[in-house]
């Protein structure tokens, strides 16, 4: 019954994504009419030969936003359930920072995302950085029962990796430093068709694995002891959660920069808006809401002629949502 009552919200979000996606294709610094855009999308031509590349770029960018936003959303949701903390997320727990350190080592070491070696190196380094931080957090969580303390530990990891990155800056040349700084501002733009293929394949496969975690997630909400009593292998589930969320956050961070707030704001918002407690509903709803928020943020960035960094927009949109949700959760006493 509760699932049915959530269908209008999910439907509305999907409709919002379709509208925003089309707006992203249609509007930009170069004005094109609907007919031209439609023509180009269906393999036709337009009066300006660069327009096909512009529409392609807008299309790729929108696809990246949908997938990245969704991935960050579900990654945040799973981490919040796993750590039983509504303020957990890839950014807060230091996972994004770990991935950033991996990326920094590669970029400031002189390899760029344009080269094959650079591409592979950055992806691997990002994933290793993110997963290492998650394992460290997991290790610490054995000794820390207080979830707030665990979050503070995550923040400390973030500061520590930021300090290491600053040290790396001293040895990097001007071009590499600039490349890293711009990457750090976040953007859904600039992926080639090959990069988009790799990015989307990884996100889709990993998101699929996330949906296989629905049952364990529903059980983990009530605690590990309850989950174990239901026959769930807590140890392997924990490992799976760490790997999947770590890699998801790392992939997005590598390709789009450390995009903040979506991973923490969207799951909280959906928990308040969705009536069902079943993760079979919450998980897709979070993915769709994350995509919607990311697309909306990117639309604002594009309307500013790309002068506003993506992270600025996600912070402006995301931070009030988090504050609002925290107040609301305190009032209705939502727990994990």
């Amino acid at each position: 019954m509760k699932v049915r009552s959530d269908i209008p919200l999910i439907g509305l979000l999907i409709l919002g994504i379709i509208i925003l996606f089309w707006m992203n294709l249609l509007f930009g610094d170069v004005r094109m009419n609907t007919e031209d855009v439609f023509n180009l999308l269906t393999g036709g031509t337009a009066e300006n030969s660069a327009w096909s590349y512009i529409v392609e770029s807008r299309l790729y960018r929108s696809l990246v936003a949908v997938l990245a936003g969704g991935a960050l959303g579900i990654s945040g949701l799973i981490l919040q359930v796993f750590f039983r903390n509504p303020l957990a997320g890839p950014g807060v727990l230091g996972i994004t920072s770990g991935a950033s350190l991996g990326v920094a080592v590669v970029i400031l070491g002189g390899l760029t995302m344009g080269s094959v070696l650079g591409n592979v190196g950055i992806i691997l380094a990002g994933i290793i950085g993110a997963v290492v931080v998650l394992f460290l957090l997991l290790f610490i969580s054995k000794y820390i029962r207080n979830s707030v303390t665990l979050l503070v530990s995550g923040l400390m990891f973030g500061y520590f990796t930021a300090a290491l990155i600053n040290v790396l800056f001293l040895w990097a040349n001007e071009t590499d430093t600039r490349e890293y700084v711009v990457w750090g501002l976040g953007s859904f733009e600039g992926l080639s068709s090959t990069e988009l293929a790799i990015f989307s394949s990884l996100i889709i496969v990993l998101s699929f694995f996330c949906f296989l975690l629905v049952k364990p997630l529903n059980a983990l909400v009530a605690g590990t002891a309850y989950a174990a009593s239901l026959g769930i292998n807590v140890k392997s589930t924990r490992l799976l959660i760490i790997l999947i969320t770590g890699i998801l956050a790392a992939i997005v961070t590598v390709y789009c920069g450390p995009v903040g707030f979506i991973g923490i704001a969207v799951p909280q918002l959906i928990r308040v808006l969705v009536k069902s407690k079943n993760h079979a509903v919450i998980l897709p709803a979070v993915f769709i809401a994350g995509s919607f928020l990311a697309l909306g943020a990117d639309f604002i960035v594009r309307m500013s002629s790309n002068t506003l960094p993506l992270n600025t927009v996600t912070a402006i949109v995301g931070a009030p949502i988090i504050v609002w949700v925290i107040i609301k959760m305190n009032r209705i006493n939502v727990s994990f």
Binding site: G28, D29, V30, N48, S49, A50, W51, Y53, I54, S57, R58, E189, R302, S305, N306, T307
Partner: peptide, 13 residues
């Protein structure tokens, strides 16, 4: 002054 890529792509033609 800052120009977006698509603006310059459009003009570069």
């Amino acid at each position: 002054k800052t120009h977006s890529s698509e603006q310059v792509w459009n003009d570069g033609v």
